[in-house]
């Protein structure tokens, strides 16, 4: 079930990494609330067009901006053009992320860079690029998609976990720095969620993982989207600098 937050209607919200997985569910959930969803895309114009159509079919407006979260120049250009012509963005979901699971002793410097650049530096740059715009917007809410492994660590995910833990320090700093402007910044730490990433696991591994989850199952991306909508809405108006796990009790 998806809760409805009336203040999300027409709210302009940028969701990075909305092409698939949790990001796509978030974009769809926001569209269903009537929000104006802005998403970034890297190359494929036709895919961006079909995502726009898919979102608008659900409700609300949707706009695709062509930029990569690791490319500051194209990002600022696209964001500036959008905010000048449409208006201030008052919601941000830093969701774009990559992972490359490998043992520490095989982890190469360029793999570390790629993970940190997208997951951590990318989120920081998008937030920075929007900071001026945020001063002109009202009821700004930022949601950073971290991960349960950012809190508990995980073998073969050292770089990924580090990037996700980094988001927490970043979010808390943003929360303090801009609280006087009624801007809120929070972190979501999903546990095992059914996505392409987890579909790739074999059945036995999935069964093993499920056993370690008190609620006995993987979460759905819709459940994460629900929490994201709540954090973007004024329904959570007194909540900032917080880190919320959504993991079926995996890490208690």
């Amino acid at each position: 079930m998806i809760a409805t937050y009336s203040d999300l209607k027409d709210k302009i919200i940028l969701v990075t990494g909305a092409a698939r997985g949790i990001g796509k569910s978030i974009a769809l959930a926001l569209s269903a609330q009537g929000a104006h969803v802005v998403f970034n895309y890297r190359g494929d114009e036709s895919k961006a067009m079909s995502l726009k159509e898919e979102l608008e079919k659900v409700g609300g407006k949707a706009t695709g901006l062509k930029f990569d979260v690791t490319d500051y120049e194209s990002m600022t250009k696209a964001i500036d053009e959008f905010t000048k012509s449409v208006g201030p963005i008052s919601g941000l979901v830093n969701n774009a992320g990559v992972s490359k699971d490998t043992l520490l002793l095989r982890l190469k410097p360029d793999e570390i860079s790629s993970i940190i650049d997208t997951n951590l530096k990318g989120a920081m740059m998008v937030t920075q690029a929007l900071s001026r715009n945020f001063l002109k917007a009202e009821n700004v809410s930022i949601v950073h998609m971290s991960s349960i492994v950012g809190l508990m660590g995980n073998p073969s995910q050292a770089a990924y976990a580090a990037s996700k833990a980094g988001l927490i320090g970043f979010s808390k700093s943003v929360a303090k720095e801009l609280a006087s402007r009624n801007l809120r910044s929070n972190v979501i730490c999903p546990g095992f969620i059914q996505t392409d990433m987890t579909d790739a696991l074999n059945e036995k591994a999935k069964e093993e993982y499920s056993k370690s989850i008190p609620l006995g199952r993987f979460g759905t991306s819709e459940e994460v989207a629900n929490l994201t909508c709540f954090l973007l809405s004024r329904a959570s108006s007194y909540l900032t600098g917080e880190v919320i796990k959504i993991d079926g009790g995996l890490y208690i």
Binding site: R132, L135, K136, E177, L178, S180, R181
Partner: peptide, 9 residues
Amino acid sequence: SLDMVELMM
């Protein structure tokens, strides 16, 4: 410093 940024804007 944040007040200054806003004032300059």
